[in-house]
Amino acid sequence: MNKTVNQKAWFLVLPVFLLVAFSAVIPLMTVINYSVQDTFGHNVFTWVGLDWFYEIIHSGRMHESLARQALFTTIILLIEVPLGIFIALNMPKKGFWASFCLVVISLPMLIPGNVVGTIWQIFGRKDIGLLGHTLVNLGINYNYAEDIMSAWITIIVMDVWHWTSLVVLLCYAGLQSIPDAYYQAAKIDQASRWSIFRYIELPKMSGVLLIAILLRFMDSFMIYSGPFVLTGGGPGNSTTFLSIDLVNMALGQFDLGPASAYSLMYFLIVLLVSWVFFTFMTNMDKKGAV
């Protein structure tokens, strides 16, 4: 449908445009600026071209962090998505318990990342933490500060606890939009529980599910505060994910040039994967519409 053309509308967009310029575009330009120069302090810069990029691409440090990051994201997606769907499917559809469950489920999402990190840090401590103390008393060798496995499991469980609710909420919304008639028809057709999920619920949920996956991918790929508070990237470098590594490089070692190149590469990776997702999603929509 053709809408009325109104040039005045641009004025309404202007504030947002300015905001985005100051919050994203200008900082980004600064980063690009740093990434092609070297500095020895005193505001003296020298042009180094793409050297930093070359160095970062060939550095083992970035490769390791990237591998860790990819592993982490894959694991939490594999856990959170099925778990989220499962919880959404089993939530009450209406009445008091539906709203009750929704509130309880959304609670973790409302807590900031560093608070979550602190909560789990205390929770998992051997001496005073409920979880840590219990596990150790049960004879399990649990120590997130020293044992790699414990650290990873704690971070994963923490993220699952924190973010599965997002997947649940989105899937739940998708499920709520399915008319009762579909379930009734399936019942009449004697479809099994699996068939109902496979042929009714999953197709109707696929749109929101993809958004959930995309959001969880982006978020988990940029995870920082939780692991930073909990393990600070350790033991060793075992939980040093991309963002932690980057902050170490930029603020710890003050290597602004390589860190800028690093962050741009990081940015491009997230952008690329998101773009692939997005294209995939829109194509799905088109296929559905024709």
């Binding site: 008319p179 057709d189 068939s195």
Partner: peptide
């Protein structure tokens, strides 16, 4: 069997699979 006010079909299936669905189940 029931036909509803708004058409209920299994979107991801072909017409053939839709028709065969109750029998396959």
């Amino acid at each position: 069997a029931q036909v509803f006010q708004f058409p209920v079909v299994y979107d991801t299936m072909s017409v053939r699979k839709n028709l065969a669905f109750p029998l396959r189940n």
